[in-house]
Design a protein around this nucleic acid. Sequence first.
DNA 1: GTCATTTTGTAAAAAAATGATAAAAAGTTC
DNA 2: GAACTTTTTATCATTTTTTTACAAAATGAC
Lengths: 233, 233
Amino acid sequence: MNKVTVLVVEDDAPVRNLIVTTLKTHEYKYLTAANGAEALMLAASHNPDVVFLDLGLPDTDGIDVIKQIRNWSNMPIIVISARSEDEDKIEALDAGADDYLTKPFSVEELLARLRVTVRRLSLIGNEGNKDSSVYTNGDLKIDYMAGCAFLGEEELKLTPMEYKLLCLLAKNTGKVLTHTYITQNIWGRSWDNDIASLRVFMVSLRKKLETGPDSPQYIQTHIGIGYRMMKAD
Amino acid sequence: MNKVTVLVVEDDAPVRNLIVTTLKTHEYKYLTAANGAEALMLAASHNPDVVFLDLGLPDTDGIDVIKQIRNWSNMPIIVISARSEDEDKIEALDAGADDYLTKPFSVEELLARLRVTVRRLSLIGNEGNKDSSVYTNGDLKIDYMAGCAFLGEEELKLTPMEYKLLCLLAKNTGKVLTHTYITQNIWGRSWDNDIASLRVFMVSLRKKLETGPDSPQYIQTHIGIGYRMMKAD
DNA sequence: GTCATTTTGTAAAAAAATGATAAAAAGTTC
DNA sequence: GAACTTTTTATCATTTTTTTACAAAATGAC
């Protein structure tokens, strides 16, 4: 998963800094808000992965912030509050919070609970967004997660280079990619030899891809420039 | 959602009764276990929606129970423990627990946290919850719970490494796993030697798995990339 | 249009990289 | 220390990548 973004809602600057510093050193991205209005705005505009929410805000009741967010999003909300009464916890959790820590809290525990949340997010992500990593173009299908490509029902048996090349073209469907761009992407350099190799790979890729003897359906040559993956749909 | 089933793992009878009574009055279904072995059995056989787990069990370390369950399931586990040290919490959470309450706990808070968990379950929808403790793929069968594998009726006699490897491949059936990914998962590192070892294990695993002399039925090599468990069904 | 020139496609080889396998060495477990 | 598992090492076969040479196609000047 990419870097996780945490929205930190906390009016007390020292506490906020402590959290932010911790997040920074653990490679999380973050946003900060010092009051409820700001928090709601940032939550809506940046759609963070997780929210850390202090309930004692100057302008709004923290519970309302939870409810507001829950009106349109299920993003995980971890409450951090000075109040340790059962009723407070229950109210927050039932309003839609996912977890509740009381101040003073242990930074390590906060991180552990954040890890739990992120772990859960990635679980949902992997099962719900299964097709987000599948590319289709006519009969051609590439499953980036699984690392394989299909033409119709049949799986294409591609070498690593061919696969790389196909992915590069696919990810830029419709665009003409110059020889230099392609070789830079695959070999990290662009010598004459590489462009000659590119031609050879092009041949073998096309042999596996292009069904008929007719003009190339998927990969088009642009003489003097490079190649392009055509949009078939 | 139908009635939610909670597996209560707690050796102390009074506490267990308190929890059970509470669950009963709030219309939850429940199962109880007084030790780790029983807990694992019930978890596998009844596939409860949530687990309440006391870490101080007579027979097993609670952390091990978490890890065991996580071998084959993502069912929510809420830990209830007498130990309130940060390290204990972090260890449990990182082992796969979803929440951590310290004794003495408030019944109301427990219920609130249970509601949070159930709410989350219904969000995900039970379709994603297809993890079961046995994996089947053609003639291959893996009982994660019991920690053994079968080919048809015959049990495969696998070494620990071979078993680990097989599970990793099985859990990613259909995906091509890179050498690095595999070694990272098994050895936590990825040196040349590890990849060489991987090859050796691959040979012995295949000897035990692949029946015919024909091309590999289960484990496919992707030259320059890694391996893949094929979907046989 | 024709011809020279440039660019691209193709096949076949050489070179390099990678994988399977056996066997020995090192480590574990009981 | 015997039996077993894991790691290391070496060899050989296979596959992939690169190189090379040449044919085919496109381009542009005339």
